[in-house]
Design a protein around this nucleic acid. Structure first.
Lengths: 343, 343
DNA sequence: GGTCAAGTCCAAAGCGCTTTGGACATGGTG
DNA sequence: CACCATGTCCAAAGCGCTTTGGACTTGACC
């Protein structure tokens, strides 16, 4: 069933039928209703490709996911972010087009998306400390929104981010207030911008209290359970071990807890943990009423929603002035923190 | 830059340029090279929408992800599966179109995808015990491949699946051989077909050794850390507790381990665990040389690759005869299993 | 030398839609 | 009554590509 035959059946021109269905005013209400009903009855839906070609709008948003050929990690946050963004796309009539690409071909993938015209804009993930993608996308003229920021360049493009500095400053201060002085940071990969910011928040809080950050208490890594475990285990063997851990993800925190318990210590009594919690669907921090870990919490799914909404707004309005959204993490109290043990 | 102007610049007709670029034989090798070079230089790439409209092929595969409005879980396996499928799509020139949809509108979403023509086929996820999607897709005439199977109807459509029955039979036999008699199953959600199959494998193995499955030792749930923990904790408090657990995912296994340790027991010595391991990128079972958990292992990413390849093969060949691929899980030995403690 | 197949190219139609630029009727206004 | 704004519809062009159905040249073959 296509527009032409539908129009024939109705004894109307394709023009009128198209206008009736798309809500243009140049058609009488009576015929509009007649057309709508016939379209419904015939289960007619305009062909996407034809519509796209005619309008010049792809009605699709791209996500490019680089896959490292070396360490094959798929970002665990990805699924939830996608789910959030996808809700918005569906509601607003956009397709979500995901491209998996070897990480050395990422730039090329953006250029192709642009020149082939399959998308109206892209959502950009996981910014690194020095991220060349911004300049590249500006150059391509492809509308985009960044999930996160790149330190140093924050005003020339649109982004949605969590206030990571503030979240980790608060978390650190919270531990300091409980009397902890040896606080360790089990961070994400060092060249990720969000990890850099969290570290900054952590160090600022320490410094403000006159405590010099100890490099022996800072590690970076892939935010897996194993990473959390190994890092905690090693640090607890130091001659001057930490009494508290700050971890970058629930998985790391779970690993750290295991390391703590292996050392014969009890989390929340002997050693405290504050973790960041992205509120992933499959990785809950206990229940809403009873969190296991004290955590800086911010929904990555909500971030996905906001990114998508922002991008579509920009595309549809044609307004290219950058917009920013800074989400604040809440600090929720769980069972993983307590006063520093008195030596 | 479009075909027309490129043709003009070359002093050729659009026909010839199109043919040259698409590898048709009706063009001399000399002009083909000339065209290729000019296209390269002009950074020309044919407009996707136009190509799609002209050829009638969407060059895209759809994935529909239903999101339950009640429990907001995003399948943790999803990201890795997508990554695998996406590799294949990219290699073969297909887009991956993902639609997030409230679960009560899933059928509608498939119908729309079909009538709007945005995809050439779909990959169907997470089959339930009685899954109406197969009949629906057959009726729609939309090519599809199912990741998993639906017990009872296995020959009328294409699927790629792990031999779950066999995997769990082997795991159970392995524990039985170690002397375990009270073996618990911490399974996935009961109406998922894969969970049903795993249970079947488990029960078959027990029965074959003359052990009647004990309903008190079987639970079903969402495969989270908390589920594993709570289930293990409860079962260990039974008057006749299990000496071994079979879990459906690494997260459940991690939770079970926590429950075991909380009970003052040691995994691998007092209580054994065998888990299924989907080899998710962000959830490793220790290292390849030293797995933590004894596990039935099967890469969901590889399953994604195979599903994608199978679907594209079917679409491009036009051959609609169903094809099946059954993947065998390997049983890897970790540190979580040992002989049953002698009472 | 005439015929025919093969090689090389092109004009034009068509994919299914949107959109421009009228055409025609109607009714209100001076 | 002439004029014009308004409402309602349509024909046709166009989006950028593919593909059908030739046209023309060349060289082999009888």
């Amino acid at each position: 069933m296509n527009l032409k035959t539908l129009a024939q059946e109705l004894g109307l021109s394709p023009t009128t039928v198209s206008r009736a269905l798309n809500g243009y005013p140049e058609v009488s209400e009576a015929t509009r209703i007649r057309v709508m009903k016939a379209a419904e009855a015939a289960n007619y839906r305009p062909n996407t490709q034809a519509k796209r070609l005619a309008t010049g709008r792809a009605m699709a948003i791209g996500h490019i996911i680089p896959i490292s050929t070396r360490h094959e990690i798929v970002n665990p946050v990805f699924a939830d972010f996608i789910a959030g963004a996808g809700e918005v796309y569906a509601r607003r009539g956009y397709d979500m087009v995901i491209t998996i690409v070897p990480d050395d071909q990422e730039a090329r993938a953006y250029a192709e998306l642009r020149s082939k015209g399959n998308v109206d804009g892209v959502l950009v993930h996981a910014p690194k400390v020095e991220d060349h993608r911004i300049a590249m996308l500006d150059h391509l003229g492809l509308p985009f929104v960044l999930h996160g920021r790149v330190s140093g360049i924050e005003s020339s493009y649109s982004w949605v981010d969590v206030n990571n500095v503030r979240a980790f400053t608060r978390a650190t201060n919270f531990l300091l207030d409980l009397g902890h002085r040896r606080i360790a940071l089990i961070n994400g990969i060092g060249n990720m911008d969000f990890a850099r910011r969290r570290r900054r928040g952590y160090e600022q809080a320490l410094t403000a209290r006159g405590i010099a950050p100890d490099p022996a208490l800072i590690t970076e890594g892939e935010m897996t359970e194993a990473q959390g475990h190994d890092a905690a285990r090693e640090m607890l063997q130091l001659s001057n071990p930490p009494t508290a851990f700050l971890t970058a993800s629930l998985l790391s925190a779970m690993g750290a807890r295991r390391g703590i318990e292996e050392a014969g210590l009890k989390m929340g009594r002997d050693i405290s943990i504050v973790t960041h919690d992205d509120e992933l669907g499959y990785l809950k921090n206990g229940t809403a009423e009873e969190p296991i870990f004290t955590a800086t919490r911010s929904s990555v799914r909500e971030a996905g929603r906001r990114c998508a909404a922002l991008l579509i707004d920009q595309i549809e309005s044609g307004d290219r002035t950058p917009r920013h959204e800074l989400m604040e993490a809440v600090l929720v109290l769980g069972q993983s923190t307590g006063p520093a043990p008195t030596a």
